[in-house]
């Protein structure tokens, strides 16, 4: 029994540490885009969903309105709702525990939980909680470190932070490009967003690509 528990725990811990470390990139990106250290930490504590957080600071940094930023981030956060649908019947929690479970429902906690399927339902639950709580702790600590570091830098371009943000987005989208049709969609949306940038108000070229995705997904 203890051997099995430790295997799940080990999976969770390694994911928590590696993913949590990305928090440095987020904290730095947030400050580089004009957010304060406190706001950066608020985003990691309360939004707690990497892609959505990067999107908020990215859209605002590109000159978008707060509405565009919130919309883009929320469209990215839709997938967490679907993870919740997958996890709820397996967790069977209510009240405050359900609220906590919901808050830590992200790519990693859901991924590790599903990865424990062969070890049984109990280990799936443990994987979810260990990873969700572990990522939460490390993500927030590293966010603070990154934000403070970036704040101390001054001209962020001299440290390459202006490139760290698009590189982070690229790193987030890369593993999702499994099929040629995914790659075609990615390139098409990138070109569309660039073409629309001089024409549409900032933020809208990004949001508009979600509708391309919806049209493609419903048509097939």
């Amino acid at each position: 029994m203890s051997r099995v528990v430790s295997a799940t725990f080990r999976d969770s811990l390694s994911v928590s540490l590696t993913v949590g470390a990305y928090g440095v990139a987020f904290g730095a990106a947030a400050v580089a885009n004009g957010f304060s250290v406190i706001q950066s930490c608020f985003l990691s504590l309360l939004t707690f969903s990497g892609a959505s957080q990067f999107a908020v600071v990215g859209v605002i940094g590109a000159g978008g309105t707060s509405i565009s930023a919130i919309t883009t981030a929320s469209l990215l956060g839709l997938r967490n709702a679907l993870y919740g649908v997958i996890m709820a019947p397996r967790l069977q929690v209510h009240g405050i525990k359900r609220a906590i479970a919901a808050h830590i429902t992200i790519d990693e906690s859901t991924g590790v939980a599903l990865g424990q399927e062969v070890r049984g339902a109990d280990q799936m639950r443990k994987g979810f909680w260990y990873t969700g709580i572990g990522v939460f702790i490390f993500w927030n600590l590293f966010t603070l470190a990154g934000a403070l570091g970036a704040q101390a830098m001054g001209d962020i371009r001299a440290f390459g932070l202006d490139s760290a943000v698009p590189a982070a987005f690229l790193g987030l989208v890369w593993p999702r490009l499994k099929k040629n049709s995914d790659r075609a969609l990615a390139v098409g949306c990138a070109l569309f967003a660039i073409a629309m940038t001089p024409i549409l108000p900032a933020g809208l070229p990004i949001i508009a690509t979600a509708f391309i995705a919806i049209a493609v997904g419903l048509r097939k």
Partner: peptide, 28 residues
């Protein structure tokens, strides 16, 4: 719904890569 759910992040993240790499406010 599942398919749209996998495609939306691809679209938005790709657009963010492009805009963050090649624009400054509304200029390319």
């Amino acid at each position: 719904i599942q398919r749209v759910n996998t495609l939306i992040p691809i679209a938005l993240l790709s657009a963010l890569v492009a805009v963050q790499s090649f624009s400054e406010k509304s200029a390319l």
